[in-house]
Nucleic acid binder design. Sequence first.
DNA 1: TAGTGGTCTAGACCACAGG
DNA 2: CTGTGGTCTAGACCACTAT
Lengths: 229, 229
Amino acid sequence: MRVTYKEIKSDILAKIVKGEWAPGDLVPNEVDLAQSYNCARATVNRAMRELSEDGIVERRRKAGTRVRSSPLRKARFDIPLVRDEVEEKGETYRYALTGSVVEIAPPWLRGQLQLPEAGKVLYLSCMHYADDTPYGHEARWISLTALPAAETADFTEIGPNEWLVATVPFSEVEINLSAGLADRVLADCLECSPGDPVFTIERATWWKGQAVTYVRFSYPPGHRLTTRY
Amino acid sequence: MRVTYKEIKSDILAKIVKGEWAPGDLVPNEVDLAQSYNCARATVNRAMRELSEDGIVERRRKAGTRVRSSPLRKARFDIPLVRDEVEEKGETYRYALTGSVVEIAPPWLRGQLQLPEAGKVLYLSCMHYADDTPYGHEARWISLTALPAAETADFTEIGPNEWLVATVPFSEVEINLSAGLADRVLADCLECSPGDPVFTIERATWWKGQAVTYVRFSYPPGHRLTTRY
DNA sequence: TAGTGGTCTAGACCACAGG
DNA sequence: CTGTGGTCTAGACCACTAT
């Protein structure tokens, strides 16, 4: 059979794992590798390019390809829709709107999103449940400057996330992961104690440079974001 | 000039951003796109493949390519070496070993790493500073079964991470992000208060299926892991 | 300046899954 | 069965940069 780029990739990865090619070592160039694998250079190129994207090797023109001294510079995490996240675990998803108010954007939010002064926003407080146990709390702000339609939308049945996904085409995003503390309100929502640690994902979204929405999603104590290599 | 795959990629992304191609829409097939861009199919393929990897579109043989209804399923975060992380901000990096002991692996660690019973581990407690303010605390366990050399290594000058990187070729890894609370000891190290929220990155590492090391890295309150699109 | 990776082409065959 | 993406090839030219 012909040699595939996947075979080359895993073969080279194996050599690195075994220590045959140590961190910092120079890897043979593409022409030589193609010859030794008896395949086209493009095939080797694809394998090496992916190893480079994975952070395993480092490539520079003329200087060649080297095994990275510190592997694993990049980790990829899935940031799924809550509904999918819950349903993929085989649990039943339930959503509830717990609060809704139109307000002038508070200063911290204006700063986060670069909103115009006195811009109005719709604030929504939502809960997500998996098998009727709290899965996470969503604090959502939607810019009514960018999306006036949000003011009249009905968020009692459909969560703001799903509504937005269906309404706004695509967007620029900034994601922040951090650790916070549950205050009394959040503790009530998540059925934990005030002062418990909550894992927080914040996401700011723009569309054509204009701020659309900001969301702070808080997971109950013990939640983990995981990835493997 | 010839059409590059990057141009095609950003052109298609622009169409999605503008809403010209809405979520769920079918995108023309590769042959048609190649014709309309007046380039080879391989060039279109590369553009579409990357859009697929980025989570922008979804591709299936015979079914064709569709714009994803929920963009941003994947986020990539850099998990750098602490030294690099600090120095890239233009601050001065300092490392200190604050504790070191050889012990029998506690049960929770045995569970995490699938260690043999009564396996000995080297536990190290280290601090990392940026401009002399605490940057993070590293609780490190190294399996002496896998790496007996660690017992006699000197970790007063070189951090365990850098030592390991130079010693172990490459490895399988599991990374966990979570939120925790500072206990009294950790609070002292990080110069914060007990009960403060700490952002925690845990990393378990194997080599050829054998557990090598486990590290829990705790950042002071306020630390964020960020990524943009 | 020369060596290395980056990319494009034109064509081919194949694997998969929708209808 | 047939359309679609997935991959490989052999060759070419180009861009970058170490020396």
